[in-house]
Write a protein that binds this DNA or RNA. Structure first.
Lengths: 161, 161
DNA sequence: AACTTACGTCAGCCTTGTTGACTTTCCAAG
DNA sequence: CTTGGAAAGTCAACAAGGCTGACGTAAGTT
């Protein structure tokens, strides 16, 4: 693409970097605050939201798959998953090919809550995008992608593995 | 500045918004991972890092001030602050004008750890900035700022209150 | 038959958030 | 000078959500 093209000199003072760091901190708080408020009404937390999000994104994903995306232990995930299954938001189907695997799907109820949560988050993001403008959005995404760990980047943007 | 200038139509599909949301999630993980690894070596957590960061940014800040920036309860902050003071990283000086207030300062040891932590974080951010390019950095900052809660934006960028 | 993988579960621990109640200190207004 | 209230600290109890370690079971794989 632009390869060397955009290689202007970047004069980055410590102060500018510090502001970038704080921007991440404060923005992430805003980013999670809307779903958090909704989750309070149910007895769920951020961990439940994350599970709902990624199951919705990749229906039929296995437990192991979800573990590597979320980067937590199976004990942590299981605690969350169990309540979601008990409450009828998530369905765990035994695998056809490999019957050890559990393929995770959202039920209608699960999809409803996921939609509610992601609507709130999308509204904020859409508003931020509109305020910042189209070029800003592209830059935002580029910096975020460059900030991820490489192994994590694999899981990003719906890349099948 | 450019006001209406950048108001092209923004066609934002749900898929694009979802990818932005995931980018925030994955990038934030990367963003915190380096300091987290360092903190493990001491017996500290992310909460200690945040306190060190903001005390370093605004030396002499009061506890109440810090509370409103961090958005936690005084009991939560106090637990963290107490260990930092006991361990000699933070000094709480009784206020001159108002002797109820404690003005927080980093000791030499505290500054050393803060520097170590922020170096790690700055290195990642600098690398991401370099990969993404200068225009991307500006966009990144604009979107993040637009994503913050307005009350929080007051605390941002060293605005004195 | 033995090994490995996928998943679930029990027990226990830590950090970091919460609420509620209470005390001490101390400024400032009556 | 007294009193009200703000600032700060502390104790206790609790919850979410991470973690480790150990164990069990079903089901593929060799």
């Amino acid at each position: 693409m632009d390869g060397h093209g955009g290689e202007k000199l970047l004069f980055l003072t410590d102060e500018q970097l510090r502001q970038g760091i704080e921007a991440m901190f404060f923005a992430y708080r805003g980013f999670t605050s809307d779903p958090d408020r909704i989750l309070d009404d149910y007895a769920y937390g951020r961990a439940h939201h994350r599970a709902l999000h990624f199951i919705n994104r990749s229906p039929g994903t296995t437990v192991n798959n979800l573990l590597s995306i979320l980067g937590v232990t199976k004990q942590s995930l299981n605690r969350v998953l169990r309540t979601l299954i008990e409450d009828g938001l998530v369905e765990a189907r035994v695998g056809d090919r490999d019957r050890r695997e559990r393929h995770l799907h959202l039920t209608a109820t699960g999809r409803a809550l996921e939609a509610k949560l992601s609507d709130a988050q999308q509204t904020r993001m859409r508003q931020a995008y509109r305020t910042a403008g189209p070029e800003a959005v592209a830059g935002f995404r580029r910096v975020l992608e460059a900030m991820m760990d490489p192994e994590i980047r694999r899981h990003y943007a719906g890349l099948a593995e």
